[in-house]
Structure formats: C-alpha cells, structure tokens
Design a binder for these strands. Structure first.
Lengths: 119, 119
DNA sequence: TCCTCATTTCAATGATTGTTGAATTATAGG
DNA sequence: CCTATAATTCAACAATCATTGAAATGAGGA
C-alpha cells in the first residue's frame, strides 16, 4: 500500500461517524447493511451518512452494492488488512525486535471466543 | 485502546508531514532524532515541525526527551502497537475467519529479510 | 553575564473538512 | 404512468486544521 492511500484511509478513520460506520460494518460482516440502516444505527441524516460512506468507499474501507432499491455497504476486509499491513511494515521495518513480541499479543486468532456481537 | 484515542492517532497519521515524521522516527529507532534534524529531513520550517511533533506526541505516536540543547523525538512503539491492535481487533472481532489468514501474510517476523531500508 | 543555538509559542491567514436541507436520480409497485 | 421509497448530489455555511513569520523560552559556552 502506498503512503498516499494509507493517509486517505487514516483520514477516513479519524472521523467519529466514519469510524463508527466501519466498526458497525465489520461487525455486520459480508452481508453488510443498507445506507438507510447505517444512518439510523449511527444516528445521522441520510445525506450526511451518504457523504461519509462515499469518503469511506474512496478510502477503500467499505464497498457498495445495489440490491433492489437499497445500496448495501459492507466492510472492505482487504482494504482494512492492507492498512494494518502498512502500519505493521512501518513499525517493523526499522526495528522488528522492538514490536514483534508485543504484536503477538494482539494477534487475530480464529479461536477467539464469540461474544454477543452488538456494536 | 479507546475509540477516541484511536481517532486521534488516525488523524495524526493522516497528514503528509506527520506520517513522514513517524516513518522517519521508526527507521531511526530508539535513538530518535532532534527536532531540527527532523525539520531538515522532511523539509519544513522549525515552527511547523514543532506544531506537528506536538500533535504526534499528543496522539501517542512519538515521545520526546531533552538532551543538552536539543529535544530528541523517537517513535512510541507502544503507541503504534496499540493502534495496530485496535485495528486488528476491529477487523477480527466480527469475523476472524475473513481476515486472519490474510493477516498472517503481513506478520511482523524478526526473521524478516532486511532490505536497503529507504522509505 | 552575555551571546548563541535549538525549539516552542503565538496570532494571523488560507485551506480543508463537516453539516444542513432542498433538489435530484434510481428502483419498485399499483 | 404515477407515486413512494432509498439514496445521492449540491450549494451554503460553520468549524477545524495547516502554514507562516515574529517573538519568546531554555540550555550551554565564552
């Protein structure tokens, strides 16, 4: 991932409404949610949510698809993963010995216990 | 890491000069660099670099220490790691099976081959 | 003490970004 | 074809953020 693209992604995630949308869509998984449902969930106006969705889409954090009258957005897991990889490379490229052990702690393990997913 | 703190970190990293500073300091390692040297390296005015350094410090991405007449900044590897962990949790909490395998690819391994570190 | 170097602070200005509500496009059903 | 629903676009305004240069602080050496 290029630096410029990473910056766009960071900017997208730095805004309260947008970060909440991303987290919501990650929880929602590949099924995603309609724009209207997202607006309701994060409690902002349709036009405002549309503005933020466009920004997130441009940043490669979410992906849209049309389904009947609705437009369904879902998390772009590839984009999210690339951003994590960018950060990790940045962190590790210089001095792996510093952060490698610490990172193990934050590892993504499928053996994770599922909680009552909520928000 | 709390959402609010994560947003502050994302905002800090979303700005060109600041992201360049962080990457520079990660490369520099624990020794860090003096504010003036950073200013020269990223080619911005002293007052401007000071503004950005303060922002990065506030975001928990870098850490300062005085050394004689200089103030030396170094990457806050703990802060960086926490941010990565936040992103990974977000990504994995909902659907680990989606991103776990993909993330393995981006893993931080001490066995990483060192390239002619550049940017 | 006085002078210099390193950095920060301040106030002003310009540039970006977020929010709002009204108007528009697109899809489905009667 | 007309109406209703779902979402986006647009223009205006408010708010936040970045940059600049000048002035202030703080540390060390003559």
């Amino acid at each position: 991932m290029e630096e410029r693209q990473a910056r766009t992604a960071f900017a997208a995630l730095s805004q309260e409404t947008r970060l909440r949308i991303v987290r919501l869509l990650v929880q929602a998984g590949p099924d995603g949610m309609a724009a209207g449902a997202i607006a309701e969930a994060v409690d902002v106006s349709p036009s405002n949510v549309s503005f933020h969705l466009k920004d997130l889409e441009h940043a490669g954090m979410i992906v849209p698809r049309r389904e009947a009258r609705s437009i369904i957005y879902s998390a772009d897991f590839t984009g999210l993963r690339d951003l994590i990889a960018f950060l990790m490379k940045d962190c590790c490229a210089g001095h792996p010995e510093i952060c490698a052990p610490a990172l193990a702690d934050a590892q993504c393990k499928p053996s994770i216990k599922k909680k009552k997913a909520h928000a």
